[in-house]
Amino acid sequence: MKEKKLKIAIQKSGRLFEDSIRILKDCGISIDNGKDQLKASARNFPLEVMYLRNGDIPQYLTDGVADIGIIGENLIVEKGEDLEVMQKLGFSKCRVSLAVPKKEAFDGLESLRGKKIATSYPNTVRQFLDQNKIEADLHIISGSVEIAPSIGLADAIVDIVSSGSTLFKNNLKEVATIIKSEAVLAASPKMDDDVRKIASKLQFRLQSVLRARESKYVLLNAPNEKVDEIIKVLPGMRSPTVLPLAQEGWSSLHTVIEQEKFWEIIDELKAIGAEGILVCPIEKMVL
């Protein structure tokens, strides 16, 4: 009986491609792909990779041609509302935002009434306008949306924004965020049970990698009389490890700290009396 493989669709080029390949590699998956291949197999995991245009991935998932895919949340809103989000992946964060010319006054969403809006995301914009009971005309553009106001095609635009530099260069200002987005692992509604078991194994590896990326391993020394106070500050997975040092009256404490809380906690530890604080990256964190 032929071994079943999990078919994953990823962007063949662009901002999602490199991060998608990197996270699969961090999951211990080795992919045999040559230059310009559109399909490749993993050597050490039942996985087949399909390299597709980003905008085509939702349809491949909906049709069951691909079992899972790495795409932006914004594309699920735009093209794949029937797709299941298995896992948020924490990279390629951006937002779909409304922007208008810098010189134009913007007095809230009501000022969009009757105006022309250029976008590559018509379904997302229509939902946003309907939710806010605003009637406006949409001008659908497949690329270079930012130029639309300057050539008279539109009064405003809705597009993906990361740093905002492209808007700035085109004399536009961001006035409202419609949705926030990041890369996600999305699943086809047609995936069968056997393939879903493989997808669950991949998701388990992804979760271990993501937890590690979001955490730091911290080792510190402290006088024994400060240990209890320090333990109250440290947020270990269960509780910090405490080991006696060769120097009498001192202990070494080991724990894991979330990246977003790291500096706040380090400042507290120093104030209490922690010394010799070492910070190490974590490759994987399996719970």
Rank of each mutant, 00 (worst) to 15 (best):
P223E: 11
K197L: 11
V184L: 02
F91P: 02
A42V: 07
I31G: 08
P101A: 04
E104I: 08
A66H: 00
G64W: 00
L210R: 08
P240A: 06
L138E: 01
C27L: 04
I257E: 00
S92I: 04
Y51K: 07
S163A: 08
L220I: 05
G55W: 11
L253K: 00
L172N: 01
T177N: 15
E258M: 14
D32H: 14
R15K: 14
K180F: 11
R238G: 11
L185A: 00
G152D: 05
W250R: 14
K270S: 03
S13Q: 13
G64H: 02
K173P: 00
L153S: 09
I257F: 03
K232N: 13
D107H: 09
V286P: 01
T241H: 10
I151W: 06
R95V: 08
A118T: 05
D228C: 12
G273W: 10
Q203T: 12
I71L: 12
P189A: 00
Q59A: 10
V195H: 03
V279D: 04
S181N: 04
I31N: 02
K93S: 13
N44F: 05
K35W: 10
G249L: 02
I76P: 01
R196L: 13
Q11E: 15
V65I: 13
R15Q: 15
I266G: 00
G152Q: 09
E104M: 13
K232I: 06
S208Q: 10
D228E: 15
W263M: 08
P240V: 07
D193C: 06
L234V: 15
K115T: 11
R53W: 08
N221G: 15
E260A: 12
G276H: 11
V65F: 12
K12N: 13
S111E: 04
F128H: 05
S165A: 14
I266Q: 03
H254M: 12
A9D: 02
V195L: 04
P223T: 07
S41K: 14
Y217N: 09
D137I: 12
R211W: 03
I140D: 04
T166F: 12
L243V: 15
Y121F: 13
K7D: 05
F128I: 06
T62M: 10
G14H: 05
K190Y: 07
V77E: 15
S165D: 15
D36A: 10
A118W: 00
L220M: 10
S239D: 11
A212R: 06
I21L: 14
G90N: 02
C27S: 07
G72V: 03
E84D: 10
I141R: 15
V218C: 02
I178C: 03
G276Q: 11
L38A: 10
A156F: 10
E3V: 10
P235T: 06
S150H: 13
L112F: 09
I10T: 00
F91H: 07
F262D: 01
G143M: 14
L245F: 08
Q247M: 13
S163I: 05
H139K: 12
S92V: 10
A271Y: 13
G14S: 06
T241K: 13
T166R: 14
E229V: 07
A212N: 01
K88S: 15
I23N: 00
V158H: 05
V184D: 04
A183W: 03
N132W: 06
P223R: 09
Q59I: 09
G236L: 12
K39I: 12
K284C: 09
A246N: 11
D267Y: 14
